[in-house]
Design a protein around this nucleic acid. Structure first.
Ligand code: SF4
Ligand code: SF4
Lengths: 131, 131
DNA sequence: GTTATACCCGACTAAAATAATCGTATTAAT
DNA sequence: ATTAATACGATTATTTTAGTCGGGTATAAC
């Protein structure tokens, strides 16, 4: 329980690698090979980050991806939710339904824990991991 | 991502309910019906907690379960790992293998986040939720 | 203008983790 | 005896996560 998804890890690994390389475009293939990440999966994740304006893509030979300025200032909460959707330790802390909700006797204390966890990720920026 | 398991929620709901009832034995059926929790699943979870010495069982008619004194002092980390096994936001923070480990460029910052999350659960006791 | 390299994108499949169910045995109060 | 309850292992179903495939588009180099 309480795990990050693999996709998030791959995204962070790639971002850090790209950041190390500065302004040059890095191909998905290069990163996938270097860190033993499944190519197609990494590619899909990078494409998602392009849509989110986290990185910039260049097509054709010598193409690839490059980190956009300002990405490092984004909070991990934002980053994670952009990539994986709402974050919450239980259903009632996100959109989801819960049939226990009406009688639930632990909702409030759980909600408080959830806030504490969110607070951790709110205070961490992507750059704290990728720089 | 980052969710508690349903089993943990059911366990906490049951513990809180039993605690409210003091020393009397409460049947799994009663709790399951009250909170709309699947009977067999709750029963299995309660049985697990008996083995962990968290609660005491009584068989036969008028039997059921009752919370053991001292349970409330247990940390949530202990509780969660007793019920669900090792907790960690990524594989390298628990037992599990990871083929990225050797070249991983985010391991250290992630490890720090993991410590922060564990710290939250270390500071919370079961009684903070069930009392 | 052909070729090679790389991104784009949606659909699909596989694997793993989680959630729920079933069947049978045991215990004890009435 | 009967009934109401726990004990426990095996099994199945569901959901989430992870990974794959196939066909397309852009562009640099020759
Ligand atoms: S805390 Fe209670 S209401 Fe919220 S998801 Fe869990 S069971 Fe449902
Ligand atoms: S942080 Fe790196 S080493 Fe640890 S599990 Fe994730 S990829 Fe593997």
């Amino acid at each position: 329980m309480l795990k990050l998804t693999r996709k998030l890890e791959y995204a962070l690994i790639a971002l850090r690698h790209m950041q190390d390389k500065g302004d040059t475009f890095i191909s998905a293939k290069e990163i996938a090979d270097m860190y033993l990440i499944p190519r197609e999966l990494l590619a899909k994740t990078l494409q998602q980050m392009v849509k989110l304006n986290y990185i910039k893509a260049a097509q054709g030979p010598h193409g690839g991806y490059r980190v956009r300025k300002g990405l490092t200032e984004i909070s991990m909460t934002q980053f994670m939710e952009d990539l994986e959707g709402p974050m919450g330790i239980v259903d009632c802390n996100i959109n989801a339904e819960c049939i226990q909700l009406e009688n639930c006797n632990i909702r409030l204390p759980i909600k408080k824990i959830n806030s504490n966890i969110r607070a951790i990720f709110n205070e961490i920026r992507v750059g704290d991991i990728t720089s």
